[in-house]
Simulated assay, not measured.
Amino acid sequence: MNQITIGVDLGATKTKVGVVQNSVVIDEIEFPTSSQGSKEQIIGELINGIEKISNQNILGIGIGVPGLIDEEKGIIYNLWNIPSWKEVHLKSQLEDHFHKPVRITNDANVFALGEKMFGKGGPYKNLVGVTLGSGFGTGIIIDHKLYSGSYSSAGEMANLPYLDKTIEDYCSGKFFFNEHGLKGDEVAKLAEKGNLEALKIFKEFGHHLGNSLKLILNILSPEAIFLGGSISKSYVFFEESLLETINTFPFKKVRDQLVVEPSTTSNTALLGSAALILAEQYQADSSS
């Protein structure tokens, strides 16, 4: 399959655009997102970025964003940390400009789809991708297909009550800073040096994350959960406490078949964004 697609990872601080061919990102650029700019300015910068590495042979453009999306119409609502993006008809604007199909979904969905199509998730019929960074995101694959629900928000558990706050407060970068006054990468550097306090902090984090994954087991009972985001790179420091907590899940058959692993796929966000176009193309080919 020699199909070429464009993948876009649009974040609050930076935007990445990549050209994907044969399951590989063959070219990419990164530029700051003008998060305080007007929606027209940000769209213009995105178009310029795509034009720099795109050509007329692409199948389409897939985009992951951290917010609510009407996927059918390609309208983005209330994009987090970009105040001017209250309602942005991005799909129609990009399709009018590039004359190629555009598909948009939540960034956690992009991670799950990328892991399914290009990473360890291939063999699994039902899986969940969990992104652990400045926030806590969840993407769901059911029967080998992305399930995004209304406004691309299915599975978003971040705001669910947990202890005295929410799941995101204890299962993202917020935990390290709010509970211990350190950034996640600072704790990781200390843990790498064998610092006992840092190792204890990661043990606490693994326990809280294990409880959130038990909730996923109760609701979805997937075969596999893959962890992404910056914190997943420190998996070795919280793996033991995470698995110990999951082992308290009451349904032994469910927990015994579960695979929990950090993603090792490079450029998952760009690959997953491009996969929005490839998955649609695959389904169209299968039904023809």
Rank of each mutant, 00 (worst) to 15 (best):
N2I: 08
Q3Y: 15
Q3L: 15
T5D: 12
G7K: 08
V8E: 01
L10N: 11
A12P: 08
A12I: 12
Q21D: 07
N22M: 10
I26G: 04
I29H: 05
E30K: 14
P32G: 13
T33N: 00
S34V: 09
G37V: 00
S38P: 03
K39V: 04
Q41E: 13
L46R: 10
N48L: 12
N48F: 09
G49Q: 00
I50D: 04
I53W: 03
N55T: 09
I61C: 02
G62S: 02
V65H: 05
L68S: 13
I69C: 14
D70G: 09
E72M: 11
K73F: 09
I75D: 07
I76V: 15
Y77N: 03
N78K: 15
E87Y: 04
H89T: 05
K91M: 10
K91W: 09
Q93L: 11
L94H: 06
F98R: 12
K100Q: 15
R103N: 07
T105W: 03
N106K: 09
A108D: 01
V110Q: 07
F111R: 13
G114K: 05
K116P: 13
M117I: 08
F118A: 00
K125G: 06
V128E: 07
V130Y: 02
L132R: 06
G133A: 03
S134N: 10
F136P: 04
G137R: 06
G137H: 03
T138A: 00
T138N: 08
I140R: 07
I140L: 12
I142H: 06
I142P: 06
I142R: 14
K145M: 10
K145T: 07
L146Y: 04
Y147A: 09
Y147C: 04
G149I: 10
S150L: 14
S150N: 11
S153I: 05
G155H: 04
L160C: 11
D164R: 11
K165I: 03
E168F: 01
C171D: 08
S172Y: 00
S172Q: 01
K174P: 08
K174G: 08
F175G: 07
F176W: 13
E179F: 03
H180V: 09
G181A: 13
K183W: 07
D185W: 09
D185P: 01
V187F: 03
A188V: 09
K189Y: 00
K193M: 11
I201M: 14
E204H: 14
F205S: 02
H207K: 11
H208E: 00
G210R: 00
N211S: 08
S212M: 09
S212I: 01
L217Y: 04
N218R: 10
I225N: 12
G228L: 05
G228E: 03
S230M: 07
I231S: 06
K233M: 07
S234T: 00
F238S: 02
E240H: 14
L243A: 09
E244G: 12
N247P: 01
P250C: 03
F251P: 08
R255G: 00
L258G: 04
L258K: 05
L258D: 02
V260N: 03
E261G: 08
P262T: 10
P262M: 06
T264R: 12
T264P: 02
S273N: 05
A275K: 03
I277F: 11
A279E: 15
A279W: 13
S287L: 15
